[in-house]
Amino acid sequence: MARQRTERSSVVSGVRPRDRPVKTCPVCGRPFQWRKKWKDVWDEVRYCSERCRRQKKSPITDRGV
């Protein structure tokens, strides 16, 4: 028999998923939500993933071409 999810199980630290803060990734442009592992550094989080962080745009340099 399948186990039914209750409202309580979908609530993390008192905030429903639809009520969590959202930011937009500057690399891929996708929105991403607050995660529990980011609770202490949410203001510093800029990228949705490690992949986007690695692909961030580097400053354009003039190569003298």
Rank of each mutant, 00 (worst) to 15 (best):
Q4C: 05
D19Q: 11
R5M: 04
R63H: 11
S9Y: 00
Q55D: 08
K56M: 13
V12L: 10
C52P: 04
T24D: 06
A2I: 01
M1A: 07
V12C: 02
S49N: 04
D43Q: 09
K39S: 15
K57N: 04
K23D: 07
D40F: 03
S58L: 15
T61F: 12
V22F: 07
E44T: 06
V12M: 10
V22T: 15
I60L: 09
R3F: 10
C28L: 08
R18H: 12
G14N: 05
K23H: 06
S10D: 05
V15D: 04
P59Y: 06
V11C: 04
R30I: 14
V15N: 09
K36A: 13
V27R: 08
Y47T: 14
W34R: 02
E7V: 12
R20M: 08
Q4W: 06
C28W: 01
T24S: 11
R53Y: 11
W38E: 09
P17G: 03
R18Y: 03
V45A: 03
C25W: 01
F32W: 10
T6R: 08
C52E: 00
R8L: 03
R51W: 07
C52V: 06
R46E: 11
G14T: 04
W34V: 04
R54G: 04
R51G: 07
G29R: 00
P31K: 10
V41C: 14
P59H: 07
W42D: 11
V45Y: 02
G14H: 07
W34D: 00
V41H: 02
V45R: 05
V11T: 11
R63G: 15
D62N: 15
R16K: 14
R46A: 12
D19K: 14
K57A: 15
R53I: 02
R46H: 08
E50D: 14
S58F: 09
C25A: 08
C25I: 12
G29V: 10
R3E: 10
C52G: 03
V41Y: 08
I60D: 13
S13C: 13
Q4K: 07
T6P: 00
W34I: 05
P59N: 09
R35C: 06
R20P: 03
S58H: 13
P21D: 11
V12E: 13
Q33H: 04
E44V: 03
G29A: 08
Y47A: 05
Q55V: 01
V15T: 10
V27L: 00
F32V: 06
P59I: 12
S9G: 00
